[in-house]
Amino acid sequence: MKHRLRSIIPDRLRRRTQRQYLIGRAFNRRRALRSTVDRTAQIRKGDILAFVTLRNERVRLPHFLDHYRKMGVDHFLVVNNDSDDGSGNYLAQQSDVSLWWTGASYKRSRFGMDWMNRLLMRYGCGHWCLTVDADEFLIYPHCDTRPLPALTDWLDTSGRRSFPAMLLDMYPRGNIEDQPYSEGVDPFLIARWFDPANYTIRKNPFFGNLWIQGGPRTRTFFAADPLSGPALNKIPLVKWDRRYAYVSSTHMLLPRHLNLVYDENGGERVSGCLLHAKFLSTFADKSAEELDRRQHYANSKEYQAYHAGLRRGTNLWCSESREYQDWRQLEDLGLISRGHWA
């Protein structure tokens, strides 16, 4: 017993130290964010908030805001990382958006997570907070008939504070550039295919989260080095508390219990999906630009791989791809689960 205690305490201490470091770091970045439009006074008790970091996403924004507004998100808190395509102006005109501008380095603020942690800490406490990118669209069981507040109310009554939603890469059939994406259109009318069953899962014993990899990116761009493919596990929806902090993107949080969103006794907990609308015609330009900026994870290794692939006219589609229908299809495939939310 004594031996076990000794081996447990250091991990807990380490996690606590790391959490406090992350919170302190986020607090330190408060001056990096310059408030452009502050409508946070509109936020009421019980509102669902969305936290977004973006750069040059003007084309995608109308559908993004539309999707989450319909779902029941009440307010958007957006960090505009030096966009030059009019994203800032567009967002400033939206009545439910509060906007911050920053010119600081994306990479040196832990890929935007310092900014997100800062805003979450300042505005998110006591709210259900959805932290997503502009190309991530949440899908959850019953999402066609029940709005997001139904889910969060239910999570509240079941005593859950976090909700997992794995990232599901969507892609078009044929070359990515072939079907141009235009503003306001549902991106999943074009990118409506996905990989059904090629996901590998490992448990991270320190943070307690599951490490999920696979999907079309690992299959094509990272074929030579599949183990360094991107992580797909995400916990985007959290009932925030000032003691919480995102550790690495929205893949995992501290304290650890927020990562334990899965059942280990054979049962299923509730989970959803973030449909990833990255692979559209807009992507080639974006990857070229991001490659120049070198602001992404692991020296933009992902973007290098994409760019090398995309120049050849990349087709992510394969004969085993499935066409997206609805959340029931994802549930049948075992990508999401309704748990006991009947």
Partner: peptide
């Protein structure tokens, strides 16, 4: 089934 919310 082994997935994000079921990992026995």
């Amino acid at each position: 089934l082994y997935m994000q919310s079921r990992f026995p």
